[in-house]
Amino acid sequence: MAIGGRYVCRKRTEAHRDRPIRADSVLRMSVRIEARGLTKQYGHTLAVDDLSFTVEPGRVTGFLGPNGAGKSTTMRMILGLDAPTRGTVTVGGRRYGELRAPAHEVGALLDARAVHPGRTAFHHLLALAQSNGIAAARVHEVLELVGLSAAARRRAGGFSLGMNQRLGVAAALLGDPPVLMFDEPVNGLDPEGIRWIRELMRGFAAEGRTVLVSSHLMSEMALTADHLVVIGRGRLVADSGLEEFLRSTAEQEMLVRAADPDAFARLLTASGGSVRRGDGDALLVSELDGAAIGKLAAFHGMPLSELAPHRVSLEDAFMELTRESVEYRAGAR
């Protein structure tokens, strides 16, 4: 995808000189999204349950949770599309519905496919721009910005998902808003598109914007987010920095490979360690640090082929945290 490549290069080499996003936008940054006791009930199901969190400017906040956890519902409530059953959510201190020209406050990409297939990229954006009093010149600007200028007069029905994604980003940028929201933006994208979205979000945060991006993939968030808001079954599970999230959720474990794993496991247990099996013949040891394990091995003359901190992957930490709150699980009772 030549278009994608071009944008990525541009972003890296020229972004700071050209300032493709208007410089004056920095002046009205520092807009927070604040949810307080946000609740959404469908019949007897609580899709979102007493959710409170704040999305701060200047960083990418990952909105993380398994499918069906209530992420999209929450985002729709932020945009005033769905009404909360209880609680409030505000952008810059105001409810979204009170905003007169919301494109200047919040840019959102909910579903890239949500474009009339018969309308050209230009006219799609023009109609959206006009509704907020934005000039047609800005439409050309955002098309340039996402690398769709050449496709401006083509009908969106013929676009690839990647191009639709760019069109959706262009729409979100029309009003040059201080707050940007993306719902599962990398779903179905090719690696090029994924990288583009990631760099884009990092760039927005670096400019001081407030960026909220939802995903059910922990691995994706590990590459993009500075801060995590984790929900499961509509409830807040964690609201912390990425590193902090890891530390708080994963007990520190040591990975040990010994010549005689069974024998060494008994020795470790006898010394107060708690041991479980890892991949192959690896032992995962908690309650004992590396030095203690090393000493124990030396004392008993047990050859070790590996002794290292076991990095709990973000995915594992996430699974651990949301295990209780996953609504549908393979093999569940």
Binding site: L79, Y96, G97, L99, P102, D111, S131
Partner: peptide
């Protein structure tokens, strides 16, 4: 209905909350 069918309605109402 074309806005509902394509999902465009969400974008439209996000741009025009009134």
């Amino acid at each position: 209905t074309s806005e509902y069918a394509t999902g465009m309605i969400r974008t439209s109402l996000a741009f025009v909350p009134r």
